[in-house]
Nucleic acid binder design. Structure first.
Lengths: 228, 228
DNA sequence: TCGATAATTGTGGTATACCAGAGCCCACTG
DNA sequence: CAGTGGGCTCTGGTATACCACAATTATCGA
């Protein structure tokens, strides 16, 4: 038993606009906005009623979402969840490629050996070239892998900006990753990336990460048809 | 550069929150937030009075500014213009380097010959290695140069994100660029960058652009003392 | 019947009043 | 005189009522 009185920080400091923002963001990201029957329109008054709050904090949350590009507020028309066009998705991934490439570069220069080692430990099975058991698990690992590279770069802003971009791609990614051929190829790419970072080969690591991402962009550009 | 916020009164009829946002953003960017006597605190009620509007649209504008990182809203404490730390400035430039590097890469692959030629025409004097007449003009040209590279990449998101980052660095940049030695070096860098893009040398163009930016980051990290 | 126009309705935009927490100040007490 | 406690004030947070414009529908005239 501790001799100190430990207080579980009652910090209910979060304002309604914050909570509302989180809830809406989560809800929007979870839904499949590309389904043909997707309800893209939001009604302020109805939402405020559902959330049990007034329109004011709700609107402030919506303003934030609008600025992030998740939502489009058209004066006197309505509030609409934004459907990204294929072109926008591709641009998103291009920027992602730039960010993760820079992170990989920094990682080879600054990351500790232990941190880099953690990268390989994340893929006990994959590193031998095996195909992952199930797609869902792989998808999660995949996300985790890329986020780890971002973190190894040691540049917080790089991580934050990539996270924000990632929001928009999430619903696409899970659908695209499902193709078997791409999964095996992806595993191979990852192994090479890890090796390059371990070898502290800055240029190679950057190039592999960038090409891996741009390859996804090209794939989407060519094969995804349900956009636009 | 004034350390005080100067707010013109508006009485517009369209989208007060938009106009307010623009005015505040402009005002914050114009002031020297690193002056010792800078007034960093904003008062909602006082501002709304000066602008001739109510607090509601003003708050929505402030929420946007907060999300962009220009302002920090602390519940029941106040609203404060954010002073970036040196570390944050450096990270900003690192991300900038990644974005512009990618743009340069894309420019060598996709930009038309005419567009690339426009890059060189922007610097009739500089391309011969001469030092610019005055610092202010050079600073403007410098900004224009980098924004043009971003644009040549043909990726709109790259341009938008870089612009947003640029907001935060503007007040720093004008002060840093003033050092004579750096200006001459900068001109030389620019010439090399143009040549690389003209030669469609993707890797070289990317490297030069990246190193040019990271060089600024390193310079700020070592020599700027009025941050933190 | 068709078209133009006017009334209605529904949406986001704005103004305002009130709420609650954080700091500050001052009186009170030891 | 110093420390403490309470209340006053100032701040952002929230609720609500009203406004202006756009889309729609109803109505009237040709």
């Amino acid at each position: 038993m501790s001799s100190q009185l430990t207080i579980p920080t009652l910090q209910a400091n979060v304002s309604l606009k914050e909570k509302t923002y989180d809830i809406l963001k989560e809800a929007i990201c979870r839904m499949n906005i590309y389904a043909p029957d997707a309800q893209l329109r939001l009604d302020e008054r109805q939402l405020s009623e559902q959330l049990g709050i007034s329109r004011t904090p709700l609107r402030e949350a919506l303003v934030r979402l609008e600025q992030e590009g998740l939502v489009n507020i058209i004066p006197r028309r309505g509030i609409f969840i934004v459907r990204k066009t294929k072109r926008e998705i591709v641009e998103l991934i291009i920027v992602w490629a730039a960010l993760e490439g820079m992170a990989a570069r920094l990682a080879t220069q600054n990351a500790s050996a232990e941190d880099i080692a953690s990268l390989r430990k994340m893929f006990p099975a994959f590193s031998t070239g095996d195909q992952p058991a199930n797609i869902d698990e792989y998808s999660e690992r995949n996300i985790e892998f890329h986020q780890t590279i971002l973190r190894l770069g040691g540049c917080g802003l790089l991580v934050d900006m990539a996270d924000q971009l990632f929001l928009h791609v999430r619903s696409i990614r899970t659908q695209t990753i499902g193709e078997a051929d791409r999964a095996t190829r992806s595993v191979k790419d990852h192994r090479q990336i890890i090796e390059a970072i371990e070898a502290r080969d800055t240029d190679l690591a950057e190039r592999l990460v960038r090409e891996h991402a741009l390859d996804l962009a090209a794939h989407i550009d060519k094969n995804v048809s349900y956009l636009d």
